[in-house]
Design a protein around this nucleic acid. Structure first.
Lengths: 193, 193, 193, 193
DNA sequence: GATGAATGAGCTTTCATTCAT
DNA sequence: AATGAATGAAAGCTCATTCAT
């Protein structure tokens, strides 16, 4: 009887308040009562739109992942060349992350929590699906001889590790050309020979 | 009156049990009762040795950080050349992380939580001190003209981002030469000219 | 979000149960569980209406102080003559105290505890406000030359000391004319010349 | 195996620390650990000298009551005339109370708590014994026709109520002649005819 | 005389969730 | 669509007391 998709105002207000609380206090430490005060909605209203606390997190993760994919252009196109795809993917992540630090920090916290918090089981599945897609795409590049044949954890680390790590500390004005710099470094680290 | 330093058996038993619980269920989801069952110590005994839950985490972080520094050889020697220091630092982190996956995963979770969980305030301070030391060391290398003059978040990301990201997914047998590979990549990413 | 003012039945039931427990076991020794059993409300329900244990005491003190002021007639009227005001104040206290021994004993215990128990901080403030008002009223009588110019602690002691002390030990039938007797004694002790 | 009477230094140190804690935090809120820190004695040492928390309070009450009786001169002499005895009793209480505000405030708190706190049962008995003695003495004065035949609660209230009430608010320099003033008032309030 | 590790029942308070209106 | 009273299990932590050394 919940999880209505039509983006009523109330639903969005609740989601915005939830994100603000999760960032300020952390997901685990945020209570439904916190979200109630911040959003102005009643407890019952929150549970009208979302089945439980985990559903709030899931909706926020979906919103964040959607925004990020949108910024990545050619990254997910299976026909694109490896260098185009990889650079677009990294640069897209960095640009989106610098523009949406709140969503990014939330994604980061939730990824770490999802491993142990049962209320985040669905988030866990969603994130795993995204990782599988990237792994498959890399395997295709390997098969086409465009990138080095590295174990996936290593390939992931060399391409995206710097970007994730950078976004954890950086602010938008600290390094204006970071997106391109990190995208180039990612490609250099895995290109064939 | 807690936090006794003499390494009585009880204290170590409690610490070991706490680490096991934090890894299995996550820090936030672990209750003192969980640690009580696993360690065999009584609630009162736990609080006799540790002032609160955060003090348990702090003690574990100190133990972990100590082990990691020990594995890093020349990394902290201010007189060492930049390439020696940086490679030792990254390789030490990777080797120690592969050998102590439990401690590493705990460190990773706690670092993410420390920003928002008030019970981890002291952990936060400890980690910030470590980061400041590394930042200062890098500034010295810049002054000596050995590395590129990059904003610290970018330098940190290029050197350590891949290692952290790799350790999050990797197991010891997945990539035997990962430590050297990542150490070399780190140096190549920041060396001058 | 507690301390709702609408006098729902539940709220009153909880308050009545709390008073009974505080009297039977003392404020400090009364646990929320005691109040839960006696009121029939759940723990959560108690905290829905009252922020904490101290808020229960505060609500009871307000109820008691309200009843007492109501019994004191002309006592608080600033235009009244000193003898009318003082006699009304003392007689009102004694009559109300004899009629509401439970509330009075509670007030007495809480006054003594409020100095040291942090959970009673708000009660402390409320009581201090009441004392200040009485002190000001006495200063007016002094200015009008109606009463002796005594230091406030001494004036308070001579007027109200016997009444408080009497109520601590007395029962309604022990001394039927106590209210008038003590009121007269109070006035005689402080009247001018 | 405890309650040794020889006034070893340790015993006195513990008692002094206990009084300081009881005054600062209140009897109920003071933990043995508080007394341990303040006295420097170990937990075991405290329990070597005192059977339990109540025994600490009892010892302090005995010390206080002893001091007070010493200040009251002729008050307890059964052969003394009523006016001498009553005035000595009140003046002695006031003088001792102004000189020992700490002990007095402690006595006041403990008297209020003794009614409900089981650990203070022995204190309760001790205080009741004192009250009985005073009641008997007053009955003698009545039999000798020296004072009004009032119900004991009223007689007690008229004689001692002002003194107790005064001491609760007063400081030594606020009213230098308070002892004599209150003693005279006490006698005037109960003298025959 | 003195120590401090160990106990475990009990405390206040929080919180996700339900449901009658 | 919306409200907020009600629930009760579970959390972190305290504390008087015991006892082996």
């Amino acid at each position: 009887m919940a999880n209505h998709l039509p983006s009523s105002d109330r639903r969005t207000e609740i989601l915005d308040a939830a994100l603000a609380c999760f960032l300020a206090r952390g997901y685990a430490a945020t209570s439904i009562a916190d979200i109630r005060s911040r959003s102005g909605a009643s407890t019952g209203s929150i549970y009208h739109f979302f089945d439980n606390k985990g559903a709030l997190a899931l909706a926020l993760v979906q919103r964040a992942v959607g925004g990020w994919s949108g910024s990545s252009g050619e990254a997910a196109n299976p026909a694109a060349a490896a260098d185009i795809s990889i650079k677009a993917s990294v640069a897209g992540l960095v640009r989106w992350g610098l523009a949406n630090p709140a969503a990014l920090r939330f994604l980061d916290e939730v990824r770490s929590l999802a491993a142990s918090d049962p209320s985040l089981a669905e988030v866990s599945i969603l994130l795993a699906r995204g990782d599988d897609a990237a792994r498959t795409r890399y395997a295709d590049f390997v098969a086409r001889g465009e990138v080095r044949d590295l174990p996936w954890p290593l390939a992931h680390a060399l391409m995206l590790g710097p970007a994730y790590d950078f976004l954890r500390l950086a602010t938008a004005d600290a390094a204006p050309d970071a997106a391109d710099l990190l995208a180039t470094a990612a490609w250099d680290a895995v290109r064939a020979s």
